[in-house]
């Protein structure tokens, strides 16, 4: 089966599965109908790539044509040398989304719904998570015992999820990406066992799983550091027989998984294919054709 066909098939299966599953997202409130007169319009919904605030531009058409190709905040105009009010408030809105993505937790409801079991790195708080990257890749002995009780040793594939630097990325993508990966792997005859969720997690935490349970391939789904354009971007780090202290080059990463980048369903199918190839070649040092 070629990759395009597989992606199509997975998309279809997953959309059938998830259409009945969506529930309210507890971290971010659902957008309210902005056409209602009771509401001040939702500033975060304005597509500023299509807006030119310069009162008398020398060349409006060309400005807008180029602006449409970039998220850069161009053509915003000014009052004196300062921002217009809408420019300032939009910047603050996007920064708020980014900060809230970092400083909030993934909801228990979501983890339960997805059937994940929850553990934590050695970091005891968000603050420690952000200032001690070394602890975010380590586990206590009790946590390791928990992994050993819950996870199958020497599995072909071990999927794991970490909040990383964006809980919002997990909230936004997990419902789509887990079924997509599972379906994809199933088509290759591969089984996905229990999936742990690691709170206050850094990428190399996956290497500990490699050492303790010796799966062949580990795939870590983790929230990326948010930018102002999106706070919902997730990455997948995949490695063949990862081990603590290995060179970073042994990890393959698929980044930019979000609605405006690679959608989660499509990324999931791609990840399943990568895992299969990795198992065949018995190395993660493969150059994957895109």
């Amino acid at each position: 089966m070629n990759e395009d066909k597989l992606i199509e098939l997975v998309k279809q299966v997953v959309s059938e599965m998830t259409s009945t599953q969506k529930s309210d997202n507890p971290v971010m409130l659902e957008a309210v109908p902005s056409d209602s007169e009771e509401y001040v319009p939702d500033l975060s919904q304005v597509d500023f790539r299509k807006v030119l605030d310069i009162p008398h531009p020398a060349n409006r058409e060309e400005y807008l044509r180029v602006k449409a190709k970039t998220e850069a905040r161009l053509g915003v105009w000014r009052t004196g040398p300062r921002y217009r009010t809408n420019t300032l408030l939009r910047f603050l809105s996007d920064h708020a989304a980014a900060m809230d993505a970092v400083f909030s937790d993934v909801s228990e409801e979501m983890l339960e719904e997805m059937g994940l079991f929850s553990v934590s790195s050695r970091c005891s708080s968000k603050d420690e998570h952000l200032t001690r990257p070394d602890l975010g890749r380590q586990f206590s002995e009790e946590t390791i015992a928990r992994f050993k009780a819950k996870l199958k040793p020497k599995a072909k594939v071990q999927i794991m999820v970490g909040d990383g630097l964006s809980s919002a990325a997990i909230e936004a993508n997990l419902r789509d990406i887990i079924p997509a990966i599972s379906q994809g792997l199933k088509m290759y005859g591969l089984e996905v066992g229990n999936i742990p969720f690691v709170k206050n997690c850094r990428v190399p935490a996956m290497d500990v799983i490699g050492d303790e349970l010796e799966p062949e391939v580990v795939c870590m789904l983790i929230g990326e550091r948010p930018g102002l354009v999106t706070a919902e971007s997730m990455s997948a780090y995949i490695a063949y027989k990862p081990t603590v202290g290995m060179p970073e080059a042994r990890r393959i990463v698929i980044s930019n998984i979000h609605d405006g980048g690679t959608p989660a369903v499509e990324a999931g199918a791609h990840i399943a294919e990568l895992i299969k190839t990795m198992l065949e070649k018995k190395t993660s040092g493969i150059v994957m054709g895109d």
Partner: peptide, 21 residues
């Protein structure tokens, strides 16, 4: 940087407006 938002490096820095002010 336009409105201080570097869309490529994903961080915030001084803006054209800050420069003028």
């Amino acid at each position: 940087v336009p409105v201080g938002d570097d869309v490529m490096l994903a961080y915030q820095d001084t803006s054209f407006h800050n420069d003028a002010a």
